[in-house]
Nucleic acid binder design. Sequence first.
DNA 1: TCGCAATTCGTACGCTGTACGATCAAGATA
DNA 2: TATCTTGATCGTACAGCGTACGAATTGCGA
Lengths: 197, 197
Amino acid sequence: MSRERIAAAAIAIADAEGFAAVSMRRIAEDLGVGTMSLYHYVKTKADLIGAMDDAFMAEVLVPSLPEGWRAALVAIATRTRDALMRHPWALYSMLSVAPGVNAMRHFEQCLEALAETALTSKEKLTLLATVDDFVFGYALREAATDKKIDFDFARSQLATGEYPRLAEVVRKGRVSVVSDRFQFGLRLILDRVAQSR
Amino acid sequence: MSRERIAAAAIAIADAEGFAAVSMRRIAEDLGVGTMSLYHYVKTKADLIGAMDDAFMAEVLVPSLPEGWRAALVAIATRTRDALMRHPWALYSMLSVAPGVNAMRHFEQCLEALAETALTSKEKLTLLATVDDFVFGYALREAATDKKIDFDFARSQLATGEYPRLAEVVRKGRVSVVSDRFQFGLRLILDRVAQSR
DNA sequence: TCGCAATTCGTACGCTGTACGATCAAGATA
DNA sequence: TATCTTGATCGTACAGCGTACGAATTGCGA
């Protein structure tokens, strides 16, 4: 038994049944131990979530960075996106968690990607923040759309005729967005940066 | 007593004490009614959150759109950002809520902003999605940073010397990002779009 | 074998959302 | 006026939550 094993069990539950399904009693049951035993390895549930987040951030780390700042940044962003698609609960956890070892390693890796550029520290941080904003926003909205949501109301609203432009968009060929809007957005941001270098 | 009044009370609590502080008992207490009375106006707590989200989206609507697609888009994005800064809990609620009237009005307004352009429907939707990704990501990460987070661990980690680039960035003039990285990121995205029009 | 420390965990408390049914006020009908 | 109906209020109860506390058990060094 260990902090890591407990975090792994919690992650398995969160992946399969959602963040809300993660409870101390449930984790203990899955591990076949008493509920309160967990508290010997974990201070509080918030602490456990910290451990989950750290394990998540480990998955975000890129094994080896490609050559060139742009390729490196795209690799990191894409890997972060993929990890978030596998573990959408990380969007919740990140709101309440202090940076752990792997979060710091990730940050270090981001700076390494930009090491070859002539950007100032401030410029680097700003660019990284902007890319991260986009990556997390993409994941957030993707997670929101994935949910089985009831669109009946939206459909009935549409029929009222109060949304002419929306109705038109829906009419001509289903609501569709470019297949990979993630790469699209990333390109938008990086193109502009590459241009002003 | 009404669904709206209940939602307003819930919003007041969420704004002042966080999303987690919103409970049916607490709302009822603030309104001076019995807990179960609320259920006459609201089907479940999830339904209440839907009402909160709709009220939030009303705040996102821009009273009147500025001339020009770019100014209009910036106005909408900025207003959305401001509303999210006032009500960070909306980031949670949007993950579990179906679009309401005001969400649809907002969408309609976004399309109106792009009406003058020659973009196809698909291009419009992609652009709007990209901007929204960025806006929500910005708010998410801003909300995460705002939290009183314990950085002691991060500092001790930094002292290990395992993060040379991070240490350097911290050394030369505190970790600082461009003052308004929101407008910066927005400009990055829209510049590139304006250019390829 | 003893003693101590590490580990396990049962019980209990105050919190949550909400199902169920009792209660009550007001308006409509006979 | 007496009765009936309908909408609104809400007290009680239940299952689940995080976790404080303290008792019980285990394993190990002396």
